[in-house]
């Protein structure tokens, strides 16, 4: 009975945060199949650690941090270090967006240094402040602020303005 209720509760968490975890993973690795792997790893860690939280915001922050960490681990793999040099993803590994400027942005984000992608996503999509991102990622506010500034500068160059 207890096991069943644990399974149901975990299922609810997976369904609730599925989009958020997948988007954040994709934002960093920009590959569907790699985001799939990270997605599974995040939720497997969730059941392995079985953490408890005092609020949903705390749970969300935990999932964000683990997703970012899993993505970092992904970037450290030797295989990935080699294949990213190609900068070209197989067609079935990408999303095709409805507007041309969205596809252009996707291309630009592929060129953006991976270490800046998570802060860009947390700031522009999840709507977190620099202070909140620093807290979630356990980094200094100055580091997050610098990463955002450098990311904006890179994107400005790639997109020829518009940031």
């Amino acid at each position: 009975m207890e096991l069943q209720s644990q399974c149901t509760a975990t299922e609810a968490v997976v369904r609730k945060y599925a989009d958020m975890v997948f988007r954040l993973a994709f934002a960093q690795v920009r590959s569907k199949s790699d985001a799939d792997d990270i997605f599974q790893e995040v939720f497997l860690r969730y059941i392995r650690r079985n953490p408890s939280f005092e609020s949903e915001e705390h749970r969300k922050a935990w999932l964000i941090r683990v997703t970012v960490n899993c993505s970092k681990k992904f970037w450290s793999s030797a295989w990935k270090r080699k294949v990213v040099l190609l900068k070209v993803a197989p067609l079935d590994d990408c999303f095709s967006f409805s507007l041309p400027e969205e596809n252009e942005l996707d291309e630009a984000l592929r060129e953006l240094a991976p270490k800046y992608r998570s802060v860009v996503h947390l700031f522009y999509y999840e709507g977190y402040s620099v202070e909140q991102i620093a807290k979630i990622l356990d980094q200094k506010q100055s580091t997050v602020r610098t990463q955002l500034t450098r990311a904006r500068a890179q994107l400005y160059k790639i997109l020829k303005g518009e940031v």
Binding site: A18, F22, R23, A27, L99, L105, Y124
Partner: peptide, 24 residues
């Protein structure tokens, strides 16, 4: 533009269902 692009990024339902199965 960033938000609009990301709204279209969602996990495959099969991935979500498989993950839940795996967890169970």
């Amino acid at each position: 533009r960033y938000k609009s692009m990301n709204e279209q990024i969602i996990p495959d339902q099969v991935l979500v269902d498989h993950t839940i199965e795996l967890i169970n």
